[in-house]
């Protein structure tokens, strides 16, 4: 196993184990409460409108939108870590098929591994006090993933 393969496969397995553990923690301690909060906020929006209090109705709908965004970020972080870790492992196994030198391959592996780890982290951070850092992280990380993958396709085509 080359150094680039080790980086991709070990990072992939680490991310898989971590995102599974995160999924279990989230399902046990957060998901149910978040979903109930979403439902109650939206229902309260309609109930307050029925009472004629449109300001309270809008406030409840704002709360619904905020909880909904939080839920989306948490589920997306879990799902993206899972999917990107699979991509890392698959690319790690196929890495010998790419027409890149050892040094280029090593750089490509680091770009892919860091992007796969940091992109979902950026998504997750967007729901907390570090939302701006989260947004800043997602841009280079998603760019790194896309460019890294295009480099893989180019490496495959060159070899073929």
């Amino acid at each position: 196993m080359s150094a680039a393969q080790r980086i991709l496969i070990l990072t992939g397995i680490l991310l898989l184990g971590s995102t599974m553990a995160f999924g279990v923690y989230y399902a046990l301690f957060d998901e149910h409460q978040t979903l109930v909060g979403m439902g109650v906020s939206m229902a309260t929006g309609f109930a307050e409108a029925a009472k004629g209090d449109m300001v309270a109705a809008h406030a409840s709908l704002d709360a619904y939108a905020a909880i909904s965004a939080e839920y989306r970020s948490e589920v997306h972080a879990h799902g993206h870590w899972g999917m990107l870790s699979l991509v890392l492992i698959v690319l790690g196994i196929s890495f010998k098929r790419l027409a890149w030198s050892e040094q280029q391959g090593l750089r490509l592996a680091w770009v892919l591994a860091l992007s796969a780890a940091l992109f979902p982290l950026g998504v997750l951070l967007q729901i907390g006090p570090a939302a701006d850092i989260g947004k800043l992280l997602t841009v280079p990380a998603s760019l790194g993933m896309v460019l890294g993958l295009l480099a893989v396709v180019w490496g495959l085509v060159r070899k073929a």
Partner: peptide
Amino acid sequence: ALVMFIQLWGLWQGRDGNTSALT
């Protein structure tokens, strides 16, 4: 998740021991 961490441990242990090419 536990199985994944055991596999990670196994792969880490074998990172230098198995020099055959991963194909």
